[in-house]
Structure formats: structure tokens, C-alpha cells
Design a protein around this nucleic acid. Sequence first.
DNA 1: GTTTAGCACTCTAACTTATGGAGTGCTAAC
DNA 2: GTTAGCACTCCATAAGTTAGAGTGCTAAAC
Lengths: 346, 346
Amino acid sequence: MNEELNERCRQILEAIIEDYILSGEPVGSRALTRRHKIALSPATVRNVMADLEDMGYLASPHTSAGRVPTEKGYRFYLDSLLRIKQLPSSKRQSIREHYRHRGLRMEELLREAGRILSATSSYTGVVMVPHLATTVCRRIDFVRLSACRILVVFVSQTGIVEHKIIESQLPLSESELQEATNYLNHTFSGLTVQEIKQYIVEQMAEEKAIYDSLLRHTLQLSSMALEDDLGGQVFIEGACNILDQPEFNDLNRMKRLMRTFDQKSLLVELLHKSQLTEGVQIYIGSTEHYSDIEGCSLVAASFSSRRGATGTLGIIGPTRMPYSTVIPLVDFTAGLVGSILDNEEE
Amino acid sequence: MNEELNERCRQILEAIIEDYILSGEPVGSRALTRRHKIALSPATVRNVMADLEDMGYLASPHTSAGRVPTEKGYRFYLDSLLRIKQLPSSKRQSIREHYRHRGLRMEELLREAGRILSATSSYTGVVMVPHLATTVCRRIDFVRLSACRILVVFVSQTGIVEHKIIESQLPLSESELQEATNYLNHTFSGLTVQEIKQYIVEQMAEEKAIYDSLLRHTLQLSSMALEDDLGGQVFIEGACNILDQPEFNDLNRMKRLMRTFDQKSLLVELLHKSQLTEGVQIYIGSTEHYSDIEGCSLVAASFSSRRGATGTLGIIGPTRMPYSTVIPLVDFTAGLVGSILDNEEE
DNA sequence: GTTTAGCACTCTAACTTATGGAGTGCTAAC
DNA sequence: GTTAGCACTCCATAAGTTAGAGTGCTAAAC
């Protein structure tokens, strides 16, 4: 694939994609020259377009329609043509404003982030809750519900609170539980969940060394408490926003998208993926990749606080969305949410 | 409105509604006599249908289509014609099975209840989380995040856990907080949230009598902690299920419904309403009432545990849904969820 | 008086048939 | 290499047609 696109091709490709983003209609050679003051005749543009089609950057829905960007076209546009502006400071300010009077609960903060993303972009906002793994434990509490049923409340440095009810094998008295709690807080506070799990495994391995049955039991309970945390949960806000896009006049595509939202699994997968990489990631739904969100793209960025909690947020919109504003929006929001989490830690 | 429907009218109305529920198409006189072994000619049936239309139980989309039940028609059907079967015990068993291996977190339980309702009915499940008001306090914990920021964890007898971060006016030390916690648990444990609020108000009124500033402050904090709880939150599961219904081939209606789901406010209102009444409630969306869910109905029932937590759950489906199976399903589920909550209390 | 058969009438959904417009690809001239 | 010109293609829209289902009314039958 050694096709170097020369300047003219690039220009025309860019013009086509930008037109298409605006109109959603296939763009033809005539309209293009008119709108973009290109110093070429439609015929010449047609030749270039035919080349671009051969190379896979464009496609035509049918013989006598204009051209539409392909996934490859978008990719090239995103990688090489798009100049990303900074979000204007007025907009930054107004977004910050939205977060100002927020309640301070982690979950609500993230839900709200999704809503703000959605409202600001008029597409759909998605937010994935940080996994506990890299989260630093501030405190872990056991609350005795009955002899064998124990409520575990886990609080991270970032103020994430998770709770879970576990069934203990052995009945435990109030005072035993208190003792266990004290021990755990003393031992675990300041460690990440990962480190805690590690520690538990190591201690359990030396099981024979542990003569203290309460201690052994305590470790067992904490192990149960920390498995399968809630992290990775995904909030979807403003799902219906996206339905106003003309591409969703197709009932089936619409249903498919809604189903994807309902199941969430694809989103979890994608959001996870983009957590592994720095910066804004863009996933383009096409027939080959992510066909469930065909016609849509996900613009995602992960946010993280200084102390480790890392989640991902983003916007799902039609593939033909104005990336030049959506990308900075997602980028800015990720940073903002991260810093809000930081402040909550202090 | 003193229209007594005679036996024949009732029979025909019932037949029409049942046909319509099955097919979703306007039903005509001919088809009706054929399918229902009615000992009357189509012409006679037509006369009856015309009467029923005059009385407002039926409507015709246009001159030469069959008849469709109106909201009034459905109401009459539900109130006077429908014989509700018990859920067959095989089905009960299989539903119980679904709940068996559930994690024990309240929130997950309710979410799952929504999912099971949705899957079993192939419509959309909704669940409203119990409000704290009537909930009995088991325990209330303060966790110090920083001098002024405090995490409050509230645990009800039913195992509902709510948490919230509040900002204290005065900085509090670890030990002061401990003292406050002990005081609160001692005082509040076993009271309902309502009672607690009452108590706080009374105590504050005697403010002058409270020389102990820590005590005053503690009360203030708990007051903050208990206002605007999370209860009333609504989970919607399987929203896309309902889209497969033929009535949602209409794009606009579909969008409207999705928007209603997104906003949730109408659902909150309806679910609240049905919390005030015993048994299964049915809300029929029509142009006049609840136009946001036009073409849909909500079948709802509240569930409650012995100790007070009361929420509501239900199914949203097309108005022409098979009530004879949906109603018992909702009824049974409400009872089941209530009893699961009871067990969790034990 | 109620019920029914018959019939003219209505309305829709589905199919067919024009028609205009937008756009292409090719060729030949610049 | 670029462009004008032109024949051709395809879609969207509108208009016309038809078949089917259903109604309302009337007059006869029970």
C-alpha cells in the first residue's frame, strides 16, 4: 500500500469529507468545486475522485451518486488531514461551570460527565467507571448484618465507594469483626487493590504459618470482598440524542444501535481498549470492524487521577461527526474529570 | 356514562381486543366471526361494532379498516373482562431459578429483576429503587476523607447501602468523628429515616439546650447526609426489546419513547403513583394521558419488605400486550423481590 | 324487532410507470 | 495535464392503477 497521496488528492479528499460531515449526502464533483473554490474543473476533480475511489478512500453508493468517505478515508482524514483546534476558552469555561455545583459522589460525577458530554455534543456520552485494580485503598469496613452475612464497604483514596455483601463460612461476632477491620485498615490502607490481592495470595500461600484462624478468615473475607468489583460498568447518557441524526432514519440500524447500547459489551470492549493508550482514540464502526455501531464512531479518552483510578469516557456519534470539535471536547473533559478526582482526593 | 354493555357487546369487545392483541392489525367483522365461532353474522357484528364505536370503546383508523380498541376499550377490558390466570408453577419455578444465584447487593438485585422481567416478557423492565424514608437504619458510618470532607455510609436493615460525601463546616478530627459515629449509631439504629429526620428537627429546635457543640454539629451532618437520597432512581432494562414490536415501525414514536426512557421523569412519576396503591396498576399511554408513551402501557406493582423499604417494578410494553400473562408476571415478581429483601434482612 | 344477505362505496397498501435531476465516465479538443 | 461536451445511469418523487379488506345501508328473512 505505497500510495502516497499528493497534495491535490489530499485537498480534495479533505474537502469531500468536510462536505460530507456537514451534509450527510454523497458529494459530487460539481458541488465540490462550487463550495470550495477549487481551481479545477469538475472533470478534473472527477478524475481525482475516481483515483481516490480506486485507492479505497472513497466509495459511491451507486453509479450516479456522489462519493462518500470509506473507513479508510476517515482514518486518513483523522490521521493526516485534521487539524485539531483547542477548545475555545469560553467553551471550556462553560463546561467547567457545569461541573461546579456537582454533588461529590464519584458515581454521580461520572454520570454527569456523560450527560454533559452528551448535551455539549448533542451525541451520546459514555463513561466507564474505573476498575478498582489500580485504586489505592483508603479504608475498608466490615458491617455485620447477621452472624454470617457481612457488608463490606471499600473506600478508595479517590472517594470511590464500593460495597458488597458476602457470606462468611464462620459466624463472626461483632468484636471479632471489629478486630478484623482494624487489622485490615492497618495493613491495607495505602495499597492498591492489586497489591492487596497480591498480599493476600502470598499470605494464604504461607497458610500453614498462619495459626491465627481469625486472621486467616479475615484474609479470606477480604479476598471475597475484592473480587469482581463494579469497575468497568458503563454509563450511557443521551442515547436518544443520536437518533436525530439523519443516518438513523434506517429503522434496522437504529434498532441495532439501541441493542448495542443495551448490552454494553461492545462498548466495554472498546473503552477498555482505549484505556491502554494515551490520548484520544477513535473507533470507526464499519461492516468489517464493530459492525454493531456501523455508521457510528466512538471518540474516547481515558481519564485518571494522580492516585491511580483510571476510567474512560467518550462520545458516540455518527461517523460523519465534526471531529475537530468533538475530539478536543473529549480530550478536555477527560482532563477535567481527572483533575476533579484529584481534588477530591487531596 | 350509564352505558351498560350487554353480554353480547362484552363478548364481541373482548374478542376484538384479544384479536388485536394477537395481531396488532385492526380487526374486521368478517375475520372476527371466523376466528371466534360467534353465532352471529358479520353484519350483526358490524352493528355491534358501530355501537361500541359510538360509545367510545373502539375506533377505526379510517373508513374501511377494521376497529381498534381505544384507551377506554382497554380500560373496560382490564377492569371487567380480563380473567387473570395464575402464573403456571413451572414458570414461577423458572423465574425463581433466575434469582437463585444472584449476588446479594440490593442494587444488583433490582437491576437483575428488571432484566428478568424484560427477558421473560420480551418487553422492557423498569424498577424504581426504594426511597430511604420508610427504611430502618441499621448503621450509619462516617469516614473522614479530609478535615472537612466526610464520607457517610448509610446501611439499612434491608442491606441497602447509600453513600454520600458531605462538606463539614468545622474541621473534625478522627476521634471526634468516631465519637459522633458512636453517638449516631446508638441513637438512630432501629429508627426509620423519617423518624431520624423528625428527631433531628426536634433536637435542633431545642438548639439552645444543646451546649455540646460537637453534638450539634453531628446532628447537622446527619441531616445533610440524609437529605435527597438516591431512592427513586429508576433502572430501565431491555429498552430495545420493545422496539421489535410492529407499532414501533413508526420512527417518530420510537424516538419519543427512547427520549422518555432517557429522561425517566415520566416513569418516576408513574411508578411513584403506583406505589400508593396496592396491587398491580396499569397505565395506558394515549394522546390525552401520558402521551410520551403513546401506544405503550406500564404494568406496575410495588414491592416491599417487611421492614419498610418500598419500591416499584413493572413492565413497559405495547398497549396491546397479553395482559393475562404480563399482569401475573409483574405481580409474582413484586412478591418475589419483596421476599428476597426480607430474607436478606433476617 | 332482530338478524342477515347483498351490494355499492371507500380507503389503503402495493405495484407500476413516467419524469427530472444529479452525477458519472469517456472522448476529443485545448 | 486539463477541460468541455455528451451520452448514460441511477435514484427519488410523483402519479396512476389495481386488488383486497372492510364498511354502511337497505331490503328481505326469521
